[in-house]
Every structure is written in C-alpha cells, then in structure tokens.
Write a protein that binds this DNA or RNA. Structure first.
Length: 424
RNA sequence: GUGGGUGUGGCCUAGCGGUUAGGGCGUCAGGUUGUGGCCCUGAAGGUCGUGGGUUCAAGUCCCAUCACCCACCCCA
C-alpha cells in the first residue's frame, strides 16, 4: 500500500475548514497592511540558498531536498521563502517600484527533518517581506501585522520574543567578545557546541544542553555591544511595540538560524504550551541579503509563520470554527423522467449560483433523503415520475443535523470567532 | 543523526498464551408501494504493520524491520 511520504500529510476535506479559515484571514490581513502577493517556483538553483541562508546553517547543511534535473542543473526545493523573493526582486527589477515594496506569499517549504509534532518535511508558510525600508517603523509594522493575525484568528497567549544581533559595523566586536568568553568556557560544553564554536559562534547561545545553557546565560549580550545606530533602532522598535500593546519580551539568546539576519530578530511563541521551543512564527531584518545576491543595496525585513502550527494551536485552544454547509439544495430523483428533469434543474440552479447536490440515479428516495440530510443542504427538491410529467417539484425545507449542532454551539456562546464558509 | 512510546476492518477501541478476534462510529441495504434527522434489523469490511523465533498453541511472549507519535536537535 502506498502512503504519503514521511513528514508530509494529506489535507482531507474534514480539515479544510481550518486551512480556509487561516488562509483567508492571512490574505485579508496582508491586503489590509498593503502587501501584494507574489508566487515563486517550488524549486530554485541550489546555490541561491547556499549564498543566502548560509553554508554552515543546519538548513543548508543537511535539510534541503536537492536534485539534479535532466539538463544537469542543481536544484533545491525551497526550504524557506525569503531567498526566492529576494531573487525575484532583483531579477525583475522590482527595486524600481516605489519603496518600500511589500510582498506576501502562502506557499509550501521543504526541509528534510525528522518529523515531530508540528514539524513536517513539507509545511506551509504565510510569509511577508518589506524591501527598501531601513526604519524601525517597518519592523514594528511587521510584528504588528503578525500580532494582528494571531489576534483575529483568536489565538491566545502569543508572546513575541525579540532581540537585536547588531549590524556589519558592531557585530564583529560582539563576536570577538563572544569568542573570548567561550574560549574560556568551551571545555565543558557539548560536542555540537564545540563544532559551532568553530563555524558559527552565535549559535552557541541557543543550545539547550543544560551546561551549555548556563554558560550561555552569562555570555556577553549582543545588545550591550550595539553601535549607536543599532541601539537606537532597537529601542525605537521596543517603544513602538509597547505603544501597540503587543506582548513581547527581550531574550538576548534569541539567535535565528539563518545567516542573513542582522539587527532585529523575533519569534512568536504560544505561552502556555509546555515547551518553549514551538515557535509559530518568526523573522527578522536582512539588510545585506539583496546586495549579497547581486542586487542594489536594499535594507529589508520579513517574517514567516507556519500554517500547520497555527492550526495545531487553534485546535489545542479549541477555537471554534464554523463551517456552514457548502450545499444549498439537494435534488432527489426517481424514474428516468425524474432523472432527466433533475439533471436539467440541477444545471439550471448551478448556473444561477446555487450549490447543488444531485441525488444518485440508483438510490431509493429514502436513501437520497438520508444523504440530503447529511449533506447539510437547506432544501430538498424531489422529482419523481409524476412531478416530471407535470413539470413540478416538491420542495422541502430541511432542518439538518449540522444546522442543529451549530445552533447548539451558538446557544452555548462558545464562539470566540465566527466563520462562514462562503466565498463572498 | 540520538533517545523513548505505539502499531487490531475507513475511524475509535476490547481482547489475563488457548474455542469461528468482540464492540462503537461510519458505510451499504431494509423496517410494506415515493421522503431525511430518532429507533430497530441485517450486510459488507480484518492475512491483528511486516518478517523471523519460542511454544502442543501467539493479536497476546522474544528478536529484527518498517511506519507513526513524543522528546533532543533545528526551525514555521
């Protein structure tokens, strides 16, 4: 028997309401914040990710899906959304558009990871990028938008963790201080950390090993080494967040795993979940990425948030999502004339915009009525031989199970969010 | 890559080493001629993840393997 590849999942009809709920809200918010949609290919040249995400990051070292196509080109299924957007920005000369340019996407990302709760080899991200804006206002607006999304989805207890990791000017001083500090302490630390000490010293800070964590706790803080500009940037952002009444706290050990970040980095974390590792969103500033990839110097920042993790939290927090029936009318038919008339009527109603389920020609009327009830249709139309000959139909209003359940739920007042599964 | 747990029909699940592996949900068909939701009856559907082993006897014990889940790691 074939099964979905490890770490991937089928999103069955029963689950679709969650996805529709989150995606439609994300698009709605993106538009309200002035973001335009961009879609990039599922795969890119392998080198793009190596140059942007970083050669020694875990993502690039061992988690990408790489393949060679028949022309001999090296390609990689995108492990994240920012690099492709930056590439498209440069390739199509979008830097000629009025700045800042705000782009969003909803797309799958691929990482060869060991699957776990909320972690998949294919997962969907809602992401956004603001290109061509160096002011902390953009940082504030980005975090505010994500915050607003979580609020409107009715997710509770979300906290933002923020940090500043400095810029090209001040980071070298910080890295040197870190190196000095860790040179003295490296002996007792875990093998992973010893390796990171050589390759990417910043990552030592977020090691979860107990002994390493206590060392990291006392390590020099990046915020103490910021240049004046970075300091001002950081403080201004904090003031904006406080103004917006967004729950946030600083954590000097927050270091994100992608090399292109500078200055602001942040993560969104559900507070009450037992572990603190399960961030549902994150992002940061990447002022040098566009230039690194061959574009003009372009300060920028972005965010990504995982749809599976949002849905997981919606379920854990028991956010009620109502799905009003997707069927308006069920047409039950009998006899060859009835079938003929039923098909015509169904087509006619569908042309007028109704959602119509036409009964099976081989089921009894009783069976069709049962199906009508389960379908959630509000109305049943019955066409038998008699009706077909007299060109009439029997119209019957249905008070079906689903409707009753919804009424009960509403009576209980258990509706922190209302959601109608209607296109417009 | 490292540790731990689980694996019984589409879903949930009972099953102290021993008769034809039970139940619930769902599906399908009926409960008098053309009508739903409740109720009743019946049916279909399982090589008990897979492969070895122990035993007179294995869903039940042992080993291996695979898959899934959880944690580490990493991140969305």
């Amino acid at each position: 028997m074939y099964t979905a590849p490890r770490g991937t999942q089928d999103i069955l009809p029963i689950e679709q309401k969650y996805w529709h709920y989150v995606i439609s809200k994300a698009e709605d918010i993106a538009k309200r914040y002035g973001f335009a949609r961009i879609d990039t290919p599922l795969f890119e040249e392998t080198a793009l990710f190596h140059r942007s995400v970083g050669e020694v990051t875990d993502i690039v070292e061992k988690e990408t899906y790489d393949f060679k196509d028949k022309g001999g080109g090296y390609l990689t299924l995108r492990p994240e959304g920012t690099a492709p957007v930056a590439r498209a920005y440069i390739e199509h000369g979008l830097f000629n558009e009025p700045k800042p340019l705000k782009l969003y996407y909803i797309a799958p990302a691929f990482r060869y990871d060991r699957p776990q709760k909320g972690r998949f080899r294919q997962h969907y991200q809602f992401g956004g990028e603001i290109l061509g804006d160096a002011h902390p206002l953009a940082d504030g607006e980005t975090i505010s938008m994500l915050w607003q999304l979580y609020q409107e989805l009715a997710l509770k207890n979300i906290v933002f963790i923020i940090n500043s990791i400095g810029c090209a000017q001040c980071r070298p001083f910080y890295l040197k201080a870190l190196k000095d500090y860790y040179t003295k302490n490296i002996d007792g630390m875990c093998p992973d950390c010893k390796c990171r000490f050589e390759k990417n010293i910043l990552r030592l800070l977020d090691c979860k090993e107990e002994k390493c964590a206590s060392v990291a706790q006392k390590a020099p803080r990046s915020t103490d080494y910021l240049c004046l500009e970075c300091q001002t940037h950081h403080n201004t952002l904090k003031a904006y967040l406080a103004d917006l009444k967004i729950s946030f706290r600083e954590n000097h050990r927050l270091v994100r795993g992608l090399d292109y970040y500078n200055r602001t980095v942040f993560e969104a974390v559900p507070q009450d979940s037992s572990g603190q590792q399960s961030s549902i969103g994150g992002g940061g500033r990447y002022d040098n990425l566009v230039e690194q990839l061959g574009g003009p110097p372009t300060p920028a920042l972005g965010f990504g948030t995982g749809l599976e993790r949002i849905i997981l939290n919606l379920k854990e927090q028991r956010v009620a999502i109502f799905e009003i029936s997707h069927i308006d009318v069920y047409i039950a038919i009998m006899g060859s004339d009835g079938r003929q008339q039923g098909l015509l009527l169904a087509t006619n109603l569908r042309q007028q915009g109704y959602r119509v389920l036409l009964g099976s020609g081989e089921k009894s009327l009783k069976a069709q009525m049962k199906q009508a009830d389960k379908s959630g249709a509000k109305w049943a139309l019955i066409i038998g031989e008699e009706e077909a000959q007299q060109k009439t139909v029997i119209l019957k209003a249905l008070q079906n199970q689903q409707e009753q359940q919804n009424l009960e739920q509403k009576a209980l007042g258990n509706n922190p969010t209302k959601y109608l599964d209607k296109p417009s």
